[in-house]
Design a protein around this nucleic acid. Sequence first.
DNA 1: ATATCTGCAAAGACTTTGCATGAGA
DNA 2: TCTCATGCAAAGTCTTTGCAGATAT
Lengths: 160, 160
Amino acid sequence: MPRGWYGGGPGGWWQRQFRGGGYRITMPRQIILQVLDESKRHLSAEDIYLKVYQIYPTIGLTTVYRTLELLVRMGLVFKFDFGDGRARYELTRGDGNLSHHHHLICTNCGRIIDYDDFIEEELELIKKTRQELEKKYGFEIRNHTLQFYGLCKKCKAIKE
Amino acid sequence: MPRGWYGGGPGGWWQRQFRGGGYRITMPRQIILQVLDESKRHLSAEDIYLKVYQIYPTIGLTTVYRTLELLVRMGLVFKFDFGDGRARYELTRGDGNLSHHHHLICTNCGRIIDYDDFIEEELELIKKTRQELEKKYGFEIRNHTLQFYGLCKKCKAIKE
DNA sequence: ATATCTGCAAAGACTTTGCATGAGA
DNA sequence: TCTCATGCAAAGTCTTTGCAGATAT
């Protein structure tokens, strides 16, 4: 049995999600999901393309984009923007709105650090804020991001 | 005396910032700053271009981009990414890292709401998190964003 | 005077679209 | 079978770059 969220065989829950939506389970789609599952976070479309290409060389970039769009629409994947002009993607892993997508981004070299320190309080506050914003603005909130921008250790040292 | 942050005449503090950096105070730059000062938040480069065009029709989009890049580098302007493929800009108004750049973004229609409710606790937490992250990762944090994504009232109603 | 700035046109990077072929249910 | 999915090529968007003429100091 495969490891990770992606596994579970042909009757797994995401396969059911696909069928329920009238979407076909194709080789490109399976491999894209596999790659997302096996990789670290925040991959660009091209990152994904190159990894899928190793397994399935007839893949096209277009299919990667179209599949990612579908997965985002289905709520299986989050799309991020770090301000460098290319989108990043990662599996939601079924954790809905409680996941933390919190990043430190170096505005000089583009390095991205995921942090999950000091998260407890944050989640608590965000949960509360979320509820209040939903009530006040009638928004249905599905996701959130908290990002800090600045200079990473290395770039800071160079600038000095 | 003009109102707002931008005002203050030819000896104002941002003019000094310019001179100090060896940057010239030109008509396009003055008008771009004026437009940023008089407008609501999160304008795209094209929004700014069109507003400047009303006042100074020989302006070029290139100059808008180059000026915004300069202003971001100088710390006078923040650049945001809301995930729709175009960057947004707004004056920092000298409030440094304590400002709240907190948005609700409708993933269906693109509407953006600034909120500043329930901010107290958030700022407190962010300040604390910031300090701890700087210590732990050696990052020099200069800015942050907190964004909630979902469906706005209108789009939610339509989907139902 | 002279180094910077500007605007146009062209190029670049990422993403989306049109369409004929191929594959899943 | 018949609709949906794929891949290629082309187009689209936003942004950046090259360069000659214009401008600020």
